[in-house]
């Protein structure tokens, strides 16, 4: 698709931003309608037992906002790093043929460094889960 020109912006014939916005509205209307129908037709007889969070029949104790293990934070941080780099690779991928061998060499070097980073967090135990990982 070519970038949309000013006059074609609101044209229903071009599959661009206009049709996307319309589709988004459509989807939102469907979801809202389903939720509205549910709240309109649904039963409403709450009791304290029904509203208690489910813990296999045991009465919950303490807060449910638990602290969770560090590896989850680590995964989030690794993801952040690798995802930004994936975005960088995407921008090269579109023009890969035009950039030629010079571009390929640079990108290979970049990916090589990325892989070294992956091996490093691997060796450091950043990708390990379960009881063994905390004993190291």
């Amino acid at each position: 698709m070519q970038p949309v020109a000013g006059g074609a912006l609101l044209s229903p014939w071009t599959p661009g931003i206009f049709s996307l916005s319309l589709y988004t509205i459509f989807v939102l209307v469907i979801i809202t309608a389903l939720l509205f129908l549910s709240s309109w037709l649904g039963e409403k007889k709450p009791t304290p037992e029904k509203l208690r969070p489910y813990e296999c029949g045991i009465i919950p104790s303490g807060t449910a906002r638990l602290k969770y293990p560090i590896p989850f934070y680590l995964v989030a941080i690794f993801f952040l790093i690798f995802d930004v780099e994936a975005a960088f690779i995407f921008s090269w991928a579109v023009a890969c043929e035009n950039l030629g061998w010079a571009g390929w060499l640079q990108m290979s070097y970049f990916i090589f460094v990325l892989l070294i980073g992956l091996v490093y967090i691997w060796k450091k135990g950043g990708l390990e889960w379960g009881p063994e990982s905390s004993e190291k």
């Binding site: 969070p53 489910y54 813990e55 919950p60 449910a64 638990l66 989030a76």
Partner: peptide
């Protein structure tokens, strides 16, 4: 959801989905 199981499921899901999105 204010439920311990839900929280565990949500965190597991988040970590799994971002890992595989990569």
């Amino acid at each position: 959801s204010n439920s311990k199981y839900s929280l565990l499921g949500g965190i597991r899901g988040a970590a799994q989905m971002i890992s595989y999105e990569l």
